[in-house]
Amino acid sequence: MIAKTRERTLKLARDTLTIEAAALQNMRDRLEGANADALVHAVELLHACKGRIVVSGIGKSGHIARKIAATFASTGSPAFFVHPAEASHGDLGMVTRDDVFVALSNSGETEELLTIVPIVKRTGAKLIALTGAPESALAKLADAHLDTSVEKEACPLNLAPTSSTTASLAMGDALAVALLDARGFQAEDFLRSHPGGRLGRKLLAHVSEVMRSFEDTPKIQIDASFKAALLEMTAKRMGMVVTIDQNQKVIGILTDGDLRRLLEKNVDLASIALKDAITSAPRTIPPELLAEEAIEMMEKHRINHLVVSDANGILLGALNLHDLFAAKVI
């Protein structure tokens, strides 16, 4: 790519991000007075919905509407997308008086939506409209109208839907986030609709499922030699060894980091006692906690290892970052 073309590409990319970011900031700043009241009312309508949230739009607005419907559904609010053209040929029968109908149209004059919206209203369903034209026909029909207008599209020709679709998407996310908070939606609820993939494993997996077993955990009696501890650490390849007493109670931990610090101090490793080299009372975690909590603990204390023990401090196993990566919870 020649230099001139490269610079042109980067300029357009930066300009696009700048214009769209400004559009979102402007929309945020407009959330005062009547606009703020409209947003709150929209969330109240969604929260009071006894049926489902039906999201609709055509063209680029249709693609955004699909995503918004998916976000509502994944955050605890039953929702689906309906194509306005299909709705006028039978699919409108899916909309009931207990539903809330969310219509997206930048112009607010989309013919396909204006054909079905009066029927939606007659069923008794509530109407929320996201448009860039507060004086449009769709906006005037809505029970709650959310202004998603933008000064200009990011497209250099000011034609292709760019800033306007970004604004609609962001407003949909704002509704979904406010709604999930109103519903008291928690991580456990999120898990029910996301049991698969990395996210599901991250939220579902317990420490007991991803930790090293007692047999595979590097461990040694506290009265053993320093050399024996090093051999155990090397054999189990975990970068640390747990010291225990005769009842298998955790006493301390010796890590490869501890070894580096000893070497930096020019300590004679052949003469040092194990009890003088360990870190006493290491970070421990019970096996019943979630792996996500283990990750948070490691990040908080900036450590790579956790000792797994029971309520009495008895060694059960161990966990490090490599185990979490292997279990695909990170």
Rank of each mutant, 00 (worst) to 15 (best):
I2M: 14
R8T: 14
D15H: 02
T16R: 07
L24A: 03
N26A: 15
R28L: 10
R30W: 05
L31Y: 07
A36R: 13
V43D: 01
L45A: 07
L46F: 01
G62L: 05
K67Q: 04
K67W: 03
I68G: 05
A69N: 00
G76S: 07
H83C: 05
P84A: 10
S88T: 09
D98P: 05
V100G: 04
A103R: 00
N106T: 12
L114F: 00
T115I: 05
L127N: 00
I128L: 09
I128D: 07
L130A: 01
T131N: 04
T131E: 06
G132T: 08
V150Q: 01
V150H: 02
V150P: 01
E151W: 01
K152Q: 14
K152T: 10
L157F: 08
N158K: 05
N158P: 06
L159Q: 04
P161C: 03
S163P: 00
A170W: 02
G172L: 00
D173Y: 01
D173V: 08
A176Y: 06
A176M: 04
A178E: 03
R183P: 03
F185H: 06
E188H: 12
S193E: 02
G200Y: 06
E209L: 10
P218K: 05
K219F: 00
F226L: 11
F226S: 11
A228V: 10
A229T: 10
A229E: 08
T234H: 11
R237Y: 04
G239D: 05
M240P: 10
T243C: 14
I244A: 10
Q246N: 15
D256E: 14
L259R: 14
R261W: 09
L263E: 09
D268Y: 02
I285D: 08
P286H: 12
L289Y: 13
L290S: 13
L290Y: 13
E299F: 06
H301D: 11
H301I: 08
V308C: 06
S309P: 01
S309Y: 06
A311D: 14
G313L: 04
A318N: 11
H322W: 13
D323K: 13
D323R: 12
L324C: 05
L324G: 05
F325L: 15
I330C: 15
